[in-house]
Design a binder for these strands. Structure first.
Lengths: 340, 340
DNA sequence: CTGAAAGCGCTTACAG
DNA sequence: CTGAAAGCGCTTACAG
């Protein structure tokens, strides 16, 4: 292993200067810098992150802890998220590692263990629940962390979208086109984002003087098989809905499958609208007809998440507590007016 | 942050003794140990892994680098593997982290970067190819690593199954029951395990004085959609096979789906046999009729992998270079004799 | 059984 | 612009 000492000996310089030269400090002779850099290359020097970490208190590593899962869809979704985050962090010179917990493991405890052992500068938390114990633990420890999404019960730095707006716009889009029997497939009520979307949906009804009790809000794990099952149920009602709001594209996949199987044409007999988080794997472009709805690419979120965490680590500042990403909309071909 | 110094000050002991007491060294007064442990608990001491790592050269962290993928099945498979490895490593006091590379990233380089930065004691490599560049890099660096599977072109510590035996037994089982038109769905020829299985299959033919040219060996990514597609093709032949060997349960899933769609009953008109690696997600018990074939649970492999890597890290010994796990067999209900 | 000291490889005031 | 020194928190010969 090549150390600073080896370079300093090789060059007849002090370790101090070598360190400063490599760190590109201003108060080093440019020529010296050149010599040092050349020697470092020649000897194959690689800074020891552990030593640097002990001195500076920073390792350059950020982590995410996730629970293992039985659902292939959730796994795939997760891995695409991790890929996006990894790419973004390596772009800004940080290393992103994943710790996969057992399904029954206490992830709050795991965050604590990882943090207290040192060597991890910060954490990413995704899919927060209300009163999220991971967030509680990280707050208590004073760790740097950024949440994608939001737990309204605790103050924390987060990157999120306007979920109230999502619910409002999706519902309003359908209501404006005459739909009255609408089903909303969303997550359970333990998630704030789902609560917000429902609130938005209700407001859209209220703004048109309609009774939102007419909307069927159905909570479920947001994966294709659940969307499929729920849609089968809905379509077998005597008065099936004329439109379904799928909380994400995985649910929409299930909706499409069920509709096809029941010979219910989209959009002729059933309009479908979704919120698209822009993941390749379940992209709306693979739907026929193309899925319409709100859009907010997760890849944009990761940029903000990574930058924000980097700032927190560097400056301990939590000035920018909240980042709400903009919402797009795509018409698609999956929504039809029932006004004619 | 509570350090050894804090405890030593609290107790009026030297840092040396505190360290030794906590490390449960033999040459410390039992009473002292008690006092130290009590104080550590009371003050909330957590050893700093970074400092320990700098001193001992060991961080207690092992890593695996994987490439991101577009296939949900592969993702799910991967995550189940990671869960298994994580569980096993945490059982023996090591921490397992995953680094997910971009699909186009140079993973050999990534291993090198991670290793040279320090802080990682060892690596797990899965799904090796021939002349695997990751293995080359790790060997060159002198890193501790264990391969699950094998690259016959390089010497390395590995845990594997007898893939020649898998090919032999699966083929022999079918041949003994009179099958002559057999298709073998397996991986491409760039993987040694598939080469070995094919070799085993050929030997089974030879041992019965049969011409193995009669077997259709078809290479493909080993996921359900590929198994489905291949089976559709096979069943549309004028002389379709009477038996299919699916290289894993994901392929078998595709075989079953295609057979059902073509109204080809299993096992009446088509026998199916597989090698089962015992992952929950694609378990043979969810097949109807139950899938038969060789079995070797990956969970067993992880135990060996983790132990072996731990030994390598502790002792730098590569005494146990090779661990070949035993092979089981389950009859199932998916294979029928064609001799009657 | 106990403690003073050295050192892992780095960074950074401090003094020149 | 440069270097000697301290120190991050730990472990471990070495001496008593």
């Amino acid at each position: 292993m090549v150390t600073l000492k080896d370079i300093s000996r090789d060059l007849g310089l002090s370790v101090t200067q070598v360190s400063r030269a490599l760190g590109d400090h201003t108060d080093v002779n440019p020529q010296t810098k050149q010599r040092v850099r050349a020697a470092a290359d020649r000897l194959g020097y690689r800074p020891n992150a552990v030593a640097r970490g002990l001195k500076t208190g920073r390792s350059g590593i950020v982590a995410m802890v996730v629970s293992g899962t039985r659902s292939p869809e959730v796994s795939a979704h997760l891995l695409e998220i991790v890929m996006g985050l990894s790419a973004e962090f390596s772009r800004i010179g940080l290393r992103f590692v994943l710790h996969v917990a057992q399904p029954d493991e206490d992830t709050a405890q795991l965050h604590e263990d990882l943090f207290l052992a040192g060597g991890i500068d910060g954490f990413i938390v995704i899919s927060p629940q209300r009163q999220d114990p991971r967030i509680k633990a990280l707050r208590r420890l004073g760790a740097a962390f950024v949440v994608h999404g939001r737990d309204p019960d605790q103050r924390h730095v987060h990157v999120d979208i306007d979920n109230y707006g999502v619910g409002y716009r999706l519902a309003d889009h359908l209501l404006a086109r005459g739909h009255r029997r609408i089903a909303f497939l969303t997550a359970g009520d333990h998630t704030f984002f789902s609560q917000e979307r429902v609130r938005g949906l209700r407001q859209a009804y209220a703004d048109r003087g309609l009774d939102c009790a007419a909307a069927q809000v159905i909570g479920m794990p947001m994966i294709a098989p659940e969307g499929y099952r729920a849609t089968r149920d809905l379509l077998s009602q005597t008065q099936p809905p004329t439109a379904i709001i799928a909380g994400n594209t995985m649910l929409a996949r299930g909706v499409y499958a069920a509709a096809a199987e029941c010979n219910v044409a989209i959009p002729d007999r059933l309009s479908v609208i979704t919120h698209d988080d822009g993941l390749d794997l379940f992209g709306t472009d693979t739907f026929d007809p193309p899925l319409g709805g709100t859009i907010s690419p997760l890849s944009d979120a990761w940029v903000s998440v990574a930058r924000t965490l980097q700032n927190m680590i560097a400056a301990q500042n939590d000035g920018l507590m909240e980042c709400i990403l903009p919402l797009g909309f795509r018409e698609g071909g999956s929504i039809q007016s029932v006004l004619d």
